[in-house]
């Protein structure tokens, strides 16, 4: 792993740690009086704050997960570094697209 990837994975981990804690806290808070789509969407629709929160979450997950996946592929899959990097980029783009689509759906109400 190059030092740039090493740095990117540590930085995204630093970003994800508080985001995951807030996410888990919101889950516990949100289900205290039953869980409904209306309640969730009522909190997130039109909210720039939640859009930035989960948008940042999706970007950090895509980068962090793909770098980790590249390491697993290299160590356990025996792939050449170039091929492992290509697979990791594909995984990153898929994770990013799925994540941002979800954020778009619950904050802007858009469907793709």
């Amino acid at each position: 792993m190059s030092v740039r990837l090493f740095l990117a994975q540590r930085l995204t981990a630093l970003i994800l740690a508080p985001l995951v804690l807030v996410h888990l806290g919101v889950i516990i808070y949100a289900v205290r009086s039953g869980l409904s789509a209306e309640e969730i969407l009522g909190r997130t629709r039109g909210s720039l704050g939640w859009a930035l929160f989960y948008g940042g979450f999706a970007v950090a997950v895509a980068a962090h997960g793909a770098i980790g996946l590249r390491t697993v592929i290299l160590e356990w899959g025996g792939l050449r570094p170039g091929l492992a990097t290509a697979v990791a980029w594909a995984a990153a783009l898929i994770l990013l697209a799925l994540g941002l689509r979800g954020v778009w759906a619950v904050t802007a109400g858009g469907g793709l």
């Binding site: 792993m1 030092v3 990837l5 090493f6 570094p81």
Partner: peptide
């Protein structure tokens, strides 16, 4: 030492 197959692994 910090190249692709180096200490970061």
């Amino acid at each position: 030492a910090n190249a692709g197959a180096g200490c970061g692994n």
